[in-house]
């Protein structure tokens, strides 16, 4: 595991859409926090608007969204539209959940950096964030 103490990151972890299956999101939030990353955990049932509002308010460095309902394409698409509208298209967005391979490709072409599938070791997620996310200049 890369020591994240060297850079200070603030990551939003939350669940969008109507499904409430938050086991994965909470586990990831806890693993990030234990590794020294600051986590803003938003809970379940977020709309894309709420996600982008929190991103602005909290000066978030990257957005991680868990979805298990099958609504991933619509939700990520809306998030990107709203980020762009607010001039925040450079904020990295990643996801996790049950997503079929074909849809992973579609999500990546929308701009999603990566999708973590069920069974991904927690340290792999922490390492990916430390390698790929940089603090945004404030």
């Amino acid at each position: 595991m890369i020591n994240s103490k060297t850079k200070s990151l603030k990551i939003l972890i939350g669940k969008a859409g109507l499904d409430g299956h938050d086991r994965g999101a909470k586990i990831v939030a806890r693993a990030l926090e234990e590794s020294g990353i600051e986590v803003i955990y938003t809970g379940v049932h977020l709309t894309p608007e709420m996600i982008v509002e929190t991103t602005i308010e909290e000066k978030i460095d990257a957005i991680g969204i868990s979805i298990l309902s099958g609504a991933h394409i619509h939700i990520f698409d809306e998030i990107f539209k709203l980020l762009k509208k607010n001039g925040l298209e450079d904020i990295p967005v990643f996801g996790g959940g049950v997503v079929p391979q074909d849809d992973i490709d579609k999500l990546k072409s929308l701009g999603v950096k990566t999708i973590f599938l069920p069974g991904t070791p927690l340290d792999e997620i922490v390492d990916w964030i430390n390698e790929n996310i940089e603090p945004r200049a404030t």
């Binding site: 109507l18 049932h45 609504a71």
Partner: peptide
């Protein structure tokens, strides 16, 4: 489906993309 489970009709904006999925 998720909209019915959360108390939304199929035509509610919050139901978008979740109708008949789960």
């Amino acid at each position: 489906d998720m909209p019915a489970l959360m108390g939304y009709d199929a035509d509610d904006p919050r139901a978008k993309s979740e109708v008949g999925k789960e």
